[in-house]
Design a binder for these strands. Structure first.
Lengths: 219, 219
DNA sequence: AAGTGGTCTAGACCACGCG
DNA sequence: GCGTGGTCTAGACCACTTG
């Protein structure tokens, strides 16, 4: 398991700037070239990735600086913050509903794995997720590991995800689970994880606590 | 106005893949090296950016392929789609409310430019925006140009933006403007545009039509 | 064996900001 | 005039997939 040089440099720079003040300047690329005994292009690759991720920012002709921590990029749609998930249902259906058939681009008589789970944090239920995956997209091993899988972004490693945010009143059947009154406005999020070839792989419909499940994106 | 070689190559590749089928393979980096008379690192830079933007995907050791058009990355929070904006109010207040003071990290007695505008598309009002900027952050030229400015991402060119999505019932005062009934659940979006040094520059609070203003993100 | 993307080097020239 | 980041070159070796 060889770790590329630029990745090692990234890790060292992250550790270095972690104890620096925002807007402090970091050494120049040429200084790093000496310090890390690497070529300038390799140092640049490390720094460029940190700039893309929001850890650093550049001012052309002036230097490279430490970002305010608030500006580090995040996407809470992609990586919801929870510390426990509880599965309410897990089943394999011989057919699927029309919405699932459309979202996963499969026929109604395709076998589909479905489960419903609660995401919680600090013992507060923050979201309820309905997850659908066509059975034939899963190896037997993946199928067996599914209930243990916390984050479906594993599927997203070699693909993309799209999200649509929809305002609605809390569904009656989920009001109690989310601990909110009837008629409370909440966010529903429809997520589809696609493979690189464009075929949909996972369809997730979530219902989110209006206060404790904060949707925040920094870009 | 010199256009970098890698940017010219990007443009040519975009034009090339526009008429190709999804998942078709594009020429190898070494072929492009000959074709564009550029070094492999320059070709790679062009291709890497297109991969980051979702136009292409790579399979290590196999090749580079055209993405399904659905997978091209977008963020409708960053670039809302509208074709007209109408300003309802535009004023400069000698002081600001507590929420604005907190979001822009300024004292209550700082002079603030405020305006309220309607975004519409196809003659449908899709969102209402309240925009706040500290007066001292604007040059006189920028101040005068403000009403003409459609997209505040101009400010974001050298900075970052953060978004928080909040579910709520449509505010009574905006229900008519958005053309929705009272008690309709909608999305409110709080946006803050930061400068690179971490200081907040623009605060936008928007109220969005639940059907016509779709919040979609592909990542 | 041939071809691909992934990494890496050791240089180079440029435009621009700053003192 | 010096230092910075931005661009660019012409090579190199590697691990891996595929015919």
């Amino acid at each position: 398991m060889k770790i590329p040089l630029y990745q090692q440099i990234k890790d060292k720079i992250i550790a270095m700037i972690d104890i620096m003040e925002p807007n402090a300047s970091i050494p120049s690329e040429r200084d790093f070239t000496d310090h890390f005994q690497a070529s300038r292009m390799t140092v640049r690759k490390a720094i460029n990735e940190l700039v893309d991720e929001g850890y650093l920012y550049r001012d052309a002709n002036r230097g490279t600086f430490v970002s305010d921590k608030r500006l580090i990029k995040k996407n809470s749609l992609l990586t919801p913050e929870f510390d426990k998930h509880t599965i309410l249902y897990f089943d394999v259906k011989a057919s699927c509903g029309e919405d699932v058939s459309l979202k996963l681009n499969i026929s109604r008589d395709t076998s589909v794995v479905r489960f419903i789970r609660i995401l919680s944090k600090d013992n507060i239920n923050i979201a309820l997720e309905e997850v659908y995956i066509a059975r034939n997209q899963l190896t037997d091993d993946a199928f067996n590991d599914l209930p243990k899988l916390e984050n479906f972004n594993a599927f997203f490693n070699r693909g993309s995800a799209s999200f649509t945010v929809i305002p609605m009143l809390v569904p009656i059947k989920y009001a109690n689970l989310l601990g909110v009154k009837l008629e409370t406005p909440i966010l529903s999020i429809e997520s589809i994880i696609y493979k690189n070839d464009g075929s949909p792989l996972v369809y997730i419909k979530s219902f989110n606590h209006p206060v404790y499940r904060l949707i925040e994106i920094t870009d």
